[in-house]
């Protein structure tokens, strides 16, 4: 095979997607290491969410490659990508409002994913232990039997993170995880993210610079579908191009 394998968890090379000629992501190269918590920032329309859409298969790329643990993702369907170990949180909390917290986590548990598997699925000891373990991490262990629809906005965000964690993904992608959260909730979320990036890679899109500073190991600034700057927070913040297009005003 001509493909060049890497040690990275995620290796994006020459990735382009064009919508009717408009290149939302333009020749992007991006690498993500294990145990790395990487934050992508950039002005509106920079293509941040599109990059996540491309990785998780929601949008199909025009050209280029996305390799996850050296496996090409661009040709896989959405559920197959998830089964490879990629989890993605959506921008608005995307949980099942009619189900309880427990049921939300149970439905996300990575067993019984086929039609017949789900019919025969049993809520056994191992499942319940995992669910309680995750619920504790996302600070919802007191709300197990609460209908998810009545949770606070912040709790809904945590629940969705928990629904991904229970699948134990190697790559976790979070689209604006602290949007709409109170200061205290932000702090708790930062702690949570620092904890969960152990043993996996986490890719976060965020606008809140204070929050980014607290969590990011590395930062990439996207602008018009291209990388404007990358590196640790300090370097990026001092970069004159970044200041001009994003941080300055």
């Amino acid at each position: 095979m001509l493909t060049n394998n890497t040690d990275y968890t995620l290796a994006i090379e020459d990735l382009t997607v064009s919508f009717d000629g408009f290149k939302a992501v333009d020749n992007l190269n991006f690498y993500l290491d294990k145990n790395e918590l990487h934050v992508v920032i950039g002005p509106n329309g920079a293509g941040k969410t599109t990059v996540l859409d491309l990785i998780c298969g929601k949008t199909k790329s025009t050209s280029g490659s996305i390799k996850f643990l050296n496996k090409e993702l661009t040709k896989l369907s959405e559920h197959a990508i998830v089964r490879e170990g990629v989890g993605r949180k959506f921008q608005t909390p995307s949980i099942y409002e009619n189900l309880t917290v427990l049921e939300n986590l149970e439905v996300s548990y990575p067993r019984g994913r086929g039609v017949f598997g789900s019919l025969l699925f049993k809520r056994d000891q191992a499942v319940m232990e995992k669910i309680y373990d995750i619920a504790q991490q996302i600070m919802l262990d007191e709300e197990m039997h609460t209908e998810a629809g009545v949770l606070s906005h912040g709790q809904k965000q945590w629940l969705e993170i928990g629904m991904l964690l229970i699948q134990d993904p190697q790559l976790l992608m979070l689209d604006e995880p602290v949007a709409g959260m109170s200061v205290k909730e932000r702090e708790q979320t930062a702690e949570l993210l620092n904890k969960i990036c152990q043993g996996r890679s986490v890719l976060v899109i965020e606008h809140d610079m204070e929050f980014v500073e607290r969590i990011a190991h590395k930062v990439t600034v996207l602008h018009q579908g291209k990388i404007l700057a990358a590196g640790d927070m300090e370097t990026v913040q001092k970069d004159p191009k970044v200041v001009e297009v994003y941080l300055g005003h």
């Binding site: 559920h79 998830v82 995307s94 949980i95 009619n98 990575p110 969705e160």
Partner: peptide, 15 residues
């Protein structure tokens, strides 16, 4: 029920 509510979330949970 989950699909009726948030189909994409189910799809991106590996189903």
């Amino acid at each position: 029920l989950a699909m009726r509510d948030k189909e994409d979330r189910v799809r991106f949970s590996g189903y």
